[in-house]
Design a protein around this nucleic acid. Sequence first.
RNA 1: GGGCGAGUAGCUCAGUUGGUUAGAGCGCCACGUUUACACCGUGGAUGUCGGGGGUUCGAGUCCCUCCUCGCCCACCA
Length: 1029
Amino acid sequence: MSDLAELIPNRFDYQTVCTELYAAWEADGCFRAEVNPHRKPFTIVIPPPNVTGALHLGHALNNTLQDIQIRWHRMRGFEALWMPGTDHAGIATQAVVERRLKELENKTRHDLGREKLVERIWQWKNESEIRILNQLRSMGCSCDWSRTRFTLDDICAKAVRTTFFDLFGKGLIFRGKRLVNWDTFLQTAVSDDEVFHEVVKGHFWHLKYPVIDPAVGEPTHVTIATTRPETMLGDTAVAVHPDPAAALDAVEKSLRIKLAAAPAKERPPLEQQLDELSARRETHLPLLKTLAAMAKRGARLRLPLLEREIRLVADVWAKPEMGSGCVKITPAHDPNDYEVALRCDLPMINILNVDGTLNTEAGKYQGLTVRKARQQIVEELEALGLVAEIEDRDIDLAHSDRSKTPIEPYLADQWFVKMDQLAQAAMNAVTDGRVKIIPERYAKGYLDWLGEKRDWPVGRQLWWGHQIPIWTRDCVEEAAAKAELARLSQLPDCSAGQIQFTLEAPAVIHVSVRDEGHPAEKMLESSGYVRQADVLDTWFSSALWPHSTLGWPNQTPELEYFYPTSSLITSRDIITLWVARMVLMGLNNVGEVPFKEVFIHPKILDGYGETMSKSKGNGVDPIDVIDKFGPDALRFGLCWLATDTQDVRMPVQFECPHCEAAVNQTKQNREQPTIECPSCNKLFSTQWAKSVEEKSYPKAPVTSERFDVARNFCNKLWNAARFVMINLEGFQPMQLDVLSLPLEDRWILSRLSTTTRLVSEAIGGYHFSEAARLAYDFAWDEFCSYYVEMAKPRLQDPKLKAATQQVLAHTLDQLLRILQPMIPFITEAIWQQLARFGKVRTLCGTPEQQKWLMKASWPTANTDHQDTQIEQQFSRFVAVLGALREIRSRQNLAPKEEVTFTVACDDATKSLLEPMEPFFKALARANCLGLGSNFAIPDMPAQLVVDGMEVTLDLGKFIDVEAEIERNEKLEQSLTKQITGKQAKLTNESFVSRAPAEVVEKERESLVALQQQLESVTTALTKLRRKNQ
RNA sequence: GGGCGAGUAGCUCAGUUGGUUAGAGCGCCACGUUUACACCGUGGAUGUCGGGGGUUCGAGUCCCUCCUCGCCCACCA
C-alpha cells in the first residue's frame, strides 16, 4: 500500500499526460467517425472559427459544450462525428493582414497587387489555422481531424460554385444599384451587420439655397439643415412635404392619442411637443405651403458653390415638423434620399472616389478628403452669407466594424440574393419544428429577421474569398445584346448546362459558368466578357458548411449518412447571420434542414459585464488557463458556469510572471502594453506590447479565479481515485448480491444510479451546468466525504474488505464514465491506471473490454439500485453525525478526544443506526453508549434534536458551560419565535380550511418537532445553569 | 422606438408545477496535519430575494408598475 502511495503522485501531472493521451487517442482512431449502418449517426459541425487570429474563452466554451455532446453520444453507442474546420472570414482576415502590412511595411494592398496580397493572406491563414487547431487539441476536442475543412478549400469552393450557379439559374441572384456601406479604408462595401454606431461630437449646419427667379411673394432662399455639409455637392434636389398642413395635422393627431394614453408622468414632454407644433403652424406653415406650391410648379434652386440648378420637389419624406421643414436630397449618399430620388426621378450624383476622396463631380473640390472639403465648403458658404446657423450636436456615426473608420453611404453595383422564397422556407422549418431552437426564445429573433426578407447583398470588393463566377459584357445597344443572347443559347455549353445567362436591361449580359476551370470561361474571356472582380460575402460559404463539408454537391455516403446533422451549438450573435442562412441554403441545396436542434449557449463577459474581445483587451487565451489549471479544469469550469439563463461573468486577472501575484484586470490597465505589479513592483507585458522594449518584459498570462473550483474538483477526484487504487491490493472480484449489502453500499449505489440518470438528462437537455453540479456533488459529498470515509474502517476488516473494494472500484469506474465527456483527460488517466489494479469493476455480470474510457459505454442508471428508503435512512445517519460534529466543534473538543453519546429514538431508527456505530467512531470520534430509550442520562449532557432524534453527548470534563448556555439561549429564542409563528398559522382558520391537507399536516408535524426541540433545550439549560452556580 | 434577458450572501451564481427555518462555490472567522487530497477536513457568521402594489391561507417563485444593468433590431436631414 505504501509503495503504491509513492508510485501514484498526489497531483495529476496534466502538463505531460494530457498531450500524450491526446496523441494516443488520435493514433488509435478514437476520433474517427465512419459511415456505419449498424449505428445511429450523431453529427455536429463546428462553427468554423475565423482564421483572423487565435481562439478566446468564448470559443473554449462553445467547443467544450460541443465536445461534451460528442463524447457523450460516442459513449452511448452513436457514430459520433464532430466535423472540424475554419472560416476564411473574408473582410476580417483581409483587414488584419492589410493592417499588419501597413504597420510593419507601410504598404497598402495596391502596392502588393491582388495575387501577392492573397498569397500573404494564405500565409497568415496557415499560421493561425495551425494555432487554432492546436488550441482545440489542447482543450481535448475530439474532432475527426481527417475531415478538416476550410471554407476556401476545393471542396467548399465547389459547393459555393454549384450553389451560386443554381441560384443564378433560378433568377435568385441579380445585380442592382444600391446604396452600400462603403468602407473607404478597405475600399469595399460592408453589410449592415458589419457596421457599428458611435456617437461623435459634430455640428448641425443650417444652409441657405437661393431660389432661381422667385415669383412675387415667394422666398428668395430655402433653408435646409445637415450634419454633413460636404454632401451638398451631390445634392440633386430639396424636398418639401406636398401637403404640410395635412402632415402637421397627422402628427398632432398621433400626439394627442399618445397623450391620452400616457401616464401623468410622461405628459409634460408630450404637451410641450404639442405646444411647439402649434407654434410651428404659425412660424413655418405659411412658408412651407408656399414652397409646396413652388415645388408643384417646378421651381428650381441654385446649389451654391457648384452653381448647379437643382429641383425643389414635393415628397412625403420631408417632415414639416422637423428642422426647417425642408430637406436636402443627396440620392447617391443617403438611403432615404435615394428612395426620394427613385420616386421623384432625380439624378443621382456620386461625389466620392473609392478611397473616400471627392471625385470629378465635386468640381474644384476634387481630390480633397471629406474632412477637408467640409471645412472649405463651410468657410466659403459663410463668406457668401449662406450659413443661417450652426448648432452643436451629437452625431451617431456609422463606423466599419473591420477598419474602425467612418462609413460613407455610397451608390454602387451590387450582387444580391433574392430572399423571398428562401427566407420563407427557412422560417417554415422553425415554425413547424423541423429545426428546434433552444432556448426557445431565440426563435423570435430568427423569425423576425427572416420575415423582413431583405435581399442579401453578397458581393464584396475584396481580394480574399470566392470570386463571383460571373462574366459580364456590356453590349451597349439592345439589339447587339439580343444577338449575343441568341448566340449564347446556341452554344453546346448552354445545352450541356454549363452556362446560364441573364440580361440586365438594356444591354448588359451576365453569364455564369457551372464548373471552375471549364473551357467556357476562356471562351467568354476571348469574346469580350470580363469576370466580376468581387468576391462573395464570407457568410455565403459558411451558409453551406453543414453540407459542403460532407461533400455536397456529390451525393457522398457521408452526406447520405451524417446529414442532417444532429445539433448546432453556437452563440446568439450569429443566429441570423449564420444559422438562418444555413437553414435556407440547406433547404435549397439538399432539400433538408441542416440540423435538428440549435443550442444557443451563454456568452462570456468580463468583470464589467462587457463581451470579451481582442480589440478591447479583455480577451483570455484558453491556453493561459490550460497552462495554469489544466485542460480539464478549463472545461469543467466553463461547463460549471454555463447555466441556462445567465451569461457568464468572469472577472480576470493578470498573473505576474515574477511573483505570481494576481493583478485584477481593470478598464484602466487592460489596454496598457506594460503593467507594474503592485506586489513586487516589477514590470510585465500584455498582449499590447509592441516595441522591443515593451516586449522585453515577460508576458503575464491572463486567467480567472473562477477556475479554482474546477481545478480543486479535479484534484479531489484524482486523490479519491488514488485512495481507491492504493486500497485495491489483493482485489478479487466476485458476484455481489446488492440486496444483501450493508446500508452504506446500497446507499452509494442508489445515489450513483440517481446521479447517472440525472446527469444523462441534464446533458441531453443541454443543461451543462446542472450536469457538472450533479456530478460534482455526488463525487465530492457523497462518494468522498461519506462513502470513502466509511470504507476506511471496513477495509481494515478482512470480512468486509473484498466487498468494499468491489463497490469502491465499481463506483469510481462509473463516476469516471459520467465525468468523461466533461473532463476527458483526467478521467482517462485514472481509468487506465484503475484497469491495472482492478480488471473487473462490475458488481456482477461480464465486464466490458474496452481499451479507452472515451470509447467505453455510458453507464445506464440501474433502477434496481435506486432505493429512496435507503437514501432516507442514510440521511438520518448523516443528521446524527452532523449533530455530533456540531457539538464537538462548538465545545472546541480536540480531534483526538473521544466522546460518548446516546440517541433517543424510535425502534426503527434504532435498528437502522445500530450497524452504523463504527462509523460514528470513525467519522466523529464518538462512541455510542445507547440507542433507543433505555439508557442513563449523563451528568453533563449536550443535546441536539434532529429529525426527531435526541442526540445527547456526555461532555464530562470537556464542557465549556458558559458557551453551552449562551448557545442554548440563542436557540431557545429562535425556537420560541418559530413556534409562535407556526401556532398562529395553525390557528388561522383560513389556512387550515383552505390549504391542502398534507401541507397542514406537515405544519403540525413540524410544530411538534419544534416544541420537542424547545423542550430539550429548556431541560438542558436548566441543568447547565444549575451546574454553573 | 420595438423586442429579449438579468437584478437572490462581500463576489460569481443555483432555486424545478407557489408550501417547513432561501442554497452552492469562492472569500471571511474558528479549530485541525486523523496513513487519498491544505487544490484538504470539521464547524460557524453573513440575505428587507432591486423598490412599490396586487392575487393567495401562503410569493424569491404568479400578475401589475417603477428603477437599474446588459444584449438584439429599427431609426436618427
